[in-house]
């Protein structure tokens, strides 16, 4: 593999924000672990619009112009259409050239690192974006923790280098899935089994690397699971933004990379975990300046339900 260089990075967070306390008061307790607050997409937002915003931010951060991009790769578990190429829509909105190679990766929260790997393997400057806005049933831990956001990366000539990549796959059925036609992510709901799937596959990927870096940026479905990986892999520095962003799905390991860079880490293993289960490990050496802070407007739980299109026939205090 040639040395791919990350030249620019960008991100996007929706304006609306809700606290764990506000959700917990509506449901007699907040059911996701290690999350203080999260962002909520407006009714006119989806993975496409969030991806576009992050891509614009990343292109503004890179010297590579949009007209010299050879590849656009998109990762999301929440494409707004089941069939119909959202990558094409994103490319058109961004005004990319018509000969660009476009791919969309989905079906698992590993989609974000799949998109990044497609950019790493591209022959020329590439744009990768992970954008996600998962939902669950309003009364469960998945929905309580479900956040939203997007991270985009531009590859080019100078910047941090991708040193090594590896992928580890082993089936753990039912750890996280969404049935055909459904908007709600589900789990089999066996905590020990899910923890085993997460740590086993991440450790499997780490063992494929020449060296385990001093900092990890794993997919963070909540603020608790990533710590288990740190303990089992004996790595002290585990970075994620679940506490302030909730579960950002396919974008979460890339938000973890931003957090690691912000903390001054020099070499980071980005670990894209997808239930089912598979892990992509992408070792990146060097860092870029990052700033993911965005203005926020706090909303109430009834406003949250309206923005998500949830209609409650029973349950909740509202």
């Amino acid at each position: 593999m040639g040395m791919t260089v990350i030249e620019g990075v960008g991100s996007y967070l929706p304006t609306y924000r809700i606290t764990a306390q506000e959700i917990g008061e509506a449901w007699d307790g907040f059911r996701a672990r290690g999350i203080q607050e999260k962002r909520v997409p407006g009714a006119d937002e989806d993975a496409v619009t969030m991806a576009v915003a992050a891509c614009k931010d990343a292109l503004a951060d890179a010297s590579v112009g949009r007209n010299s991009l050879t590849t656009l790769s998109v990762g999301t578990t929440t494409p707004p259409r089941e069939e119909g190429d959202i990558g094409t829509t994103i490319a058109e909105i961004l005004g990319l050239e018509n000969d660009i190679e476009v791919s969309v990766h989905t079906q698992s929260t590993r989609a974000g690192t799949r998109a990044l790997l497609a950019a790493v393997r591209a022959d020329g400057p590439a744009l990768a974006v992970a954008a996600d806005c998962p939902q669950g049933d309003p009364d469960d831990a998945i929905d309580h923790g479900a956040g939203a956001g997007a991270v985009a990366v531009v590859t080019g000539d100078s910047g941090p280098t991708v040193r090594q990549t590896a992928t580890y796959t082993r089936e753990f059925p039912g750890t996280r899935f969404r049935q055909r036609g459904s908007e709600s992510v589900e789990t089999y709901d066996a905590t020990a089994y899910e923890r085993e799937a997460y740590t086993t596959t991440i450790n499997g990927a780490l063992e494929l690397l020449d060296d385990v870096p001093a900092a990890l940026a794993p997919t963070a479905p909540d603020g608790s699971l990533p710590g288990r990986v740190g303990r089992s892999a004996d790595v002290d520095s585990v970075h994620h933004l679940a506490s302030e962003l909730g579960d950002t799905g396919a974008a979460s390991p890339l938000f973890g990379l931003l957090a690691a860079w912000d903390a001054g880490e020099e070499t980071v293993a980005v670990l894209g975990y997808g239930a089912g289960s598979s892990v992509d490990a992408i070792v990146i050496e060097g860092a870029l300046d990052v700033d993911w802070a965005r203005p926020a407007t706090d909303i109430s739980y009834p406003e949250y339900l309206r923005k998500r299109g949830h209609v409650l026939s029973n349950g909740g205090d509202h």
Partner: peptide
């Protein structure tokens, strides 16, 4: 200017510019 979902009709989402 930002790009958002403007509306959906006949199953097709129309994306376009809004102002924030």
């Amino acid at each position: 200017a930002v790009v958002r979902r403007i509306y959906e009709q006949e199953g097709i989402t129309r994306y376009g510019t809004k102002f924030r």
